[in-house]
Amino acid sequence: MVSFGELLCQYTQELAQRWYERWRREGPASPELTEAALKDHLPVQLRTIGQALRVAPASRQSPRELWRQHERLDPEQRVIDEVLIEEVVREYGFLVEEVRAWLQERGEQVSFDDYSYFYLAIFELTAESIRRYSKFRAEQVARERSEYVAGIAHQLRTPVSALHLGVEQLGRTRGEPEARVVERLRRTVGRLGRLVDGILRLERFKPEELPLHPETLAPAQLIEHIVADYAHDAHAKGLRLEVSAHPAVRMRADRDLLVDALGNLIQNAIKYTARGFVRVTLEEQADGVRFRVEDSGPGISPERQRELFRPVHPGMPGGVGLGLSIAFRAALAQGGALSLESEPGRGSTFLLSLPWSVPAREEPPAAPPEPQPGA
């Protein structure tokens, strides 16, 4: 009679394939994962258990010790692939069930001690995967938060520096300050305030929870006001700042969120365009309006474009920058969308689509306080 350990070592690939087919049938939470990514370390893990079972029970390695070697499992990759920990646990549950069914179908007789060892080994494998998954995720969150804070500091640096220079210039002015200096300070303070408000909204709410306070707007007028705030930056680089929007168009939208989105798109276009133009166009469509923010900048590669519109997490490595995060969430919150058309060397066009009328939404109720011990 072939031992359980020999069976696991001999039929490793068959068992891995059987497990994979079960995982597919059950409706996976991450269906986009490839077969290779899913199986990854499973054959090694089955073979590791099988080799341990070949040894006499009294001399076997502890099931927990099997997973001390890093190469025998890699839950960190599951975090990178954005697989939930619940899915990882479910994967190993399927493995136990499929091995048991496979043994029954073959009529294999397995001793209680051998099967108990196998079961404990899978239990310890799951537990160690959870520990390492949680540790890696915590470290990843810490890195993301650090990068996110650094991104905020970088975004704030420019308006704060401009504000500092403006105040110094104002201090050197005798008599009444020049109107252009006061106007520049006004624009800088306004930009700084909008950035801080956008960051606070990004931190406090998910897009589907953002409070919405729509009002009737003339988007052409709104575009003009936003463009005026960034005209100095564009002119300093010699860029043409062009606007095409019919003044009679009206829509209902949240003014602050719309300014968040358009302001960040226009600012990014100016920031990354060395020469040529930045053009803002308002287009009327059957189901809403579309704002086009087009530039003659360097363009964005297809690889980078895929990263730009991954699900947004603050500070996510390789993900969108802070300004685009704010714009993306402002669009989603109002039932709209943000997309991109770009080719390397041929500029970029960001397309912000919004419905004609955005419905109002109140701030979600605060969570009830945690009960105090002994209360």
Rank of each mutant, 00 (worst) to 15 (best):
L103F: 11
E65R: 15
E144Q: 13
E71S: 02
R132L: 14
R137F: 14
K39L: 14
R90N: 03
S59K: 14
R106D: 01
E124W: 13
Q61S: 14
V149C: 03
F94M: 09
E147W: 08
R64K: 11
I80N: 05
A142V: 08
A37Y: 00
F94C: 10
D81H: 10
T48H: 04
D113W: 10
K135D: 13
A142T: 11
H70C: 00
I80E: 12
F118M: 07
T48M: 10
R143E: 12
I49K: 09
R132C: 04
A37H: 00
F94G: 03
H154Y: 07
R64D: 10
L95S: 02
K39Q: 08
R132N: 06
H41W: 00
Q61Y: 03
E87D: 15
Y115D: 01
L120S: 06
E144M: 12
A37M: 00
T48F: 01
R145G: 10
A121G: 12
R137P: 01
K39F: 03
Q109K: 01
H41D: 09
E65W: 02
K39M: 09
A58Q: 15
R100S: 13
P57F: 08
E71C: 01
Y119C: 02
S116W: 03
Y133W: 07
L66A: 05
E71K: 01
I80P: 03
I80R: 13
Q155T: 06
R131K: 10
A56Q: 13
L53F: 03
W67Q: 04
L103W: 08
F112Q: 14
Q77D: 06
I80W: 07
R64W: 09
L95C: 02
S116P: 00
V83K: 02
Y115E: 04
L84F: 10
I85L: 15
L66K: 02
F112S: 11
Y148K: 01
S146I: 00
E108F: 10
Q51C: 05
V88L: 13
V44N: 04
V44P: 00
G93I: 04
I80S: 06
E65S: 15
I85K: 09
R72P: 00
L46I: 02
I80F: 09
R137A: 14
L73R: 14
E87C: 08
R72T: 06
G151S: 15
